[in-house]
C-alpha cells in the first residue's frame, strides 16, 4: 500500500484538471446546437477553451474543487482504514500542489483546515467485491451545484406529483426550474426514486459516476431518462442561465426500496464540470480511466 497515496494524488490530479471524454463531447455537441452569436454559444465556447487550457497546464478546471467523494471497491481482507488514511493524505498533498483548493471548513468556528481533511471530509464509501483489484472512483462535486440539489416527498400537491414516474418527472422539472443557471448549467442530474432522506442523496450522487453515453440497464428507466432530458432542454434556461437550448447534458436515474409511508425523490445536480476519474490498482501497478 506504500504507493497508494501517490496513486490517489494522481487520481485527484486527473479528476480536477480534466473532464471525462464523454462530458467534453456532450459540451461540444451542445455548443453546435446553440444560436450563433448567442450568450449560450459564447458560454459553451469559453467552457471548452477553459477545459483545454486546464488539461494543458494541469490546473483545476474549476476553482471549486468540491467535496472529494471516493467510491472504493476492495477485495476481502484489505484494511479500509488504511485506504481511508491514504485518501486523506492524498487530499493534503493534492492541496499542497494546488490541484485542490482548501475546501474543508469547520462548521462551528468557520476555520478552514487548509488541507481538505476534516470531520467527515473527504467522503469515502467502501464496497467489498470478489475481484483482486482495488478500484476507486472519484467525483469532485462543487458547492454551487450542491446547493441546488433538492429532495421531494411525494405526493406533492403543489406540483400535482403522485407516486409514479409522472410524479417523478414533475418534481425533477421543478428542481431544475428552481436551480436556473445557479448550479452551473448545463448540468447532469443524478436522481434517486425511493430510499430514505440520507440514502437517496448518496445513491443519486453515485448515479453521477455513470458515463453519459452509458444507457440505463432497465429499458423503462432508460426511456424515462431520455424523456426527462428532452423535457429539461425545453425549459430554455441554457448554459449558465443565459437562456438557450442546453439546460442539461444528461439524467441518470437510480431506484431504491422505500418505506410504505415514504416516497422520496432525491435530485443531485452536477455542474457541467463533472469531474470524475477512476483508479484501478492491481498488485503494485496502477492504471487510470
Amino acid at each position: 500500500m506504500d504507493n497508494l497515496t501517490e496513486h490517489f494524488v494522481e487520481l485527484i490530479r486527473r479528476a480536477a484538471t480534466d473532464l471525462p471524454a464523454d462530458v467534453e463531447v456532450a459540451l461540444i455537441v451542445a455548443g453546435e446546437s446553440e444560436e450563433p452569436g448567442s450568450a449560450a454559444k459564447g458560454a459553451l465556447e469559453t467552457i471548452l477553451r477553459n477545459v483545454a487550457l486546464a488539461r494543458e497546464q494541469s490546473t483545476p478546471v474549476c476553482q471549486d474543487t468540491g467535496t472529494p467523494i471516493f467510491e472504493v471497491y476492495h477485495p476481502v481482507g484489505v484494511s479500509t482504514r488504511e485506504i481511508a488514511q491514504c485518501a486523506r493524505n492524498a487530499c493534503a498533498v493534492a492541496t499542497e500542489r494546488s490541484y485542490l483548493r482548501p475546501n474543508a471548513v469547520d462548521s462551528l468556528t468557520g476555520k478552514n483546515s487548509g488541507d481538505n481533511t476534516g470531520i467527515g471530509f473527504p467522503t469515502l464509501h467502501f464496497n467489498e467485491w470478489d475481484e483482486e483489484t482495488i478500484k476507486v472512483q472519484l467525483l469532485l462535486k462543487g458547492g454551487g451545484s450542491e446547493n441546488v440539489g433538492a429532495q421531494y416527498k411525494l405526493p406533492d400537491g403543489r406540483l400535482k406529483a403522485g407516486r409514479d414516474l409522472e410524479g417523478v418527472r414533475r418534481v425533477v422539472l421543478d428542481a431544475i426550474y428552481q436551480a436556473q443557471g445557479k448550479g452551473c448549467a448545463p448540468g447532469i442530474l443524478g436522481v434517486t426514486i425511493g430510499g430514505d432522506r440520507g440514502s437517496g442523496y448518496v445513491r443519486a450522487k453515485q448515479a453521477l459516476l455513470r458515463r453519459l453515453d452509458e444507457p440505463n440497464p432497465d429499458p423503462a428507466l432508460d426511456a424515462f431518462e431520455r424523456q426527462l432530458l428532452s423535457d429539461l432542454n425545453r425549459l430554455q434556461i441554457g448554459p449558465m442561465g443565459f437562456g438557450g437550448r442546453t439546460t442539461a447534458l444528461g439524467v441518470k436515474v437510480a431506484v431504491q426500496h422505500r418505506l410504505p409511508a415514504c416516497y422520496f425523490v432525491s435530485v443531485a445536480y452536477m455542474c457541467w464540470a463533472c469531474r470524475r476519474a477512476t483508479l484501478v490498482v492491481r498488485g503494485n501497478k496502477a492504471s487510470y480511466e
Partner: peptide, 11 residues
C-alpha cells in the same frame, strides 16, 4: 456574469 467553472481561463 463570468462563466462559472472557467477557472483556468480566468486565472
Amino acid at each position: 456574469s463570468a462563466i462559472g467553472g472557467a477557472a483556468s481561463l480566468i486565472a
